[in-house]
Design a binder for these strands. Structure first.
Lengths: 151, 151
DNA sequence: CTAGAACCTCAACTAATGTTGAGGTCAATC
DNA sequence: GATTGACCTCAACATTAGTTGAGGTTCTAG
């Protein structure tokens, strides 16, 4: 296997296969500015190989629960012309880690409240902190709102 | 304040105000079998007061990230004719607690993986467990899929 | 008894995240 | 150099969770 093979750009079929993301979803991501592609003379897409990592980042971010809009914003912070370095990706990962931490904390808080409510079976509006995000949960885990409330 | 006031059914405006859920959303919940209402002679909705708790349960469940379909299924396990008791609500809360636990565990797993990746900046398909839900995360935290994958 | 607030239904629209299909083109192989 | 699988665009549709508006009715307070 010639090493030059390693640098050949990917067709959409290859990217789809290797990323596990459908071609139609890749089209969609492109329309929404999350990925981009060169074109052949015949107008077919050719992806730089680091697009694979980009798509991986998109998938992972979605698993965390982030909307594509946020993911696009994060990706926009990548260097424009050059292929992103490990350091670039690390920075993004670190950013997501914070989101994750907040989200986990919020869910744990919710669980604690739920534990309290299981005893009383309350879930009633005034007495149960679960009902009012702006109450205790809002104060100690503002991150929660990021994930469930509209902007 | 006469105690009989406590038993008067709620108008949609009252339920909306007290639950923080818009009237149009209440209509929507009704269309989708999540809540129900009696009607006055003039066809206006009148809600039993425990509907307040039902709506609270819906809101809380949504904050956990559950789709309405799942919430409806849970609510269907409530007794049909009578007003649910604390015990009934406790049972549902307990069920949600399990979901929450799984979800927290899955996110923690994801975070651990992410920590590994921050060091290497990888996020590449083969080497990074983050990419393949059916790998480690799938094995130890199947619950994660419940929240992010289509059925 | 009447004005105005609150309510009713139904249809259409929104936004996110894609999928599906029609109709046509490209490119790699025999 | 033709075939065939992979690709292209564009439009329409799907799903979730509602919102908005039009056009009409009911309820309540004065």
């Amino acid at each position: 296997m010639p090493p030059v093979e390693t640098h050949r750009p990917l067709t959409i079929g290859e990217l789809s296969e290797r990323s596990g993301v459908s071609a139609s979803a890749l089209h969609f991501y492109e329309r929404n500015g999350l990925i981009e592609a060169e074109r052949t003379a015949g107008n077919q897409r050719r992806y730089r190989r680091d697009t694979l990592r980009r798509v991986a980042f998109i998938k992972t971010s979605q698993r965390v629960g982030l909307p594509l809009k946020d993911i696009r914003e994060a990706l926009e912070s990548l260097p424009d012309g050059r292929t992103p370095t490990k350091r670039d990706w690390s920075r993004l990962s670190l950013r997501w880690r914070k989101e994750l931490d907040e989200r986990i904390a919020a869910l744990q808080h919710l669980r604690n409240d739920l534990d309290g409510c299981i005893g009383c079976g309350c879930l009633s509006l005034k007495s149960c902190t679960l009902q009012n995000p702006s109450d205790e949960l809002g104060a100690s885990g503002a991150g929660a709102q990021r994930w469930t409330l509209p902007e």
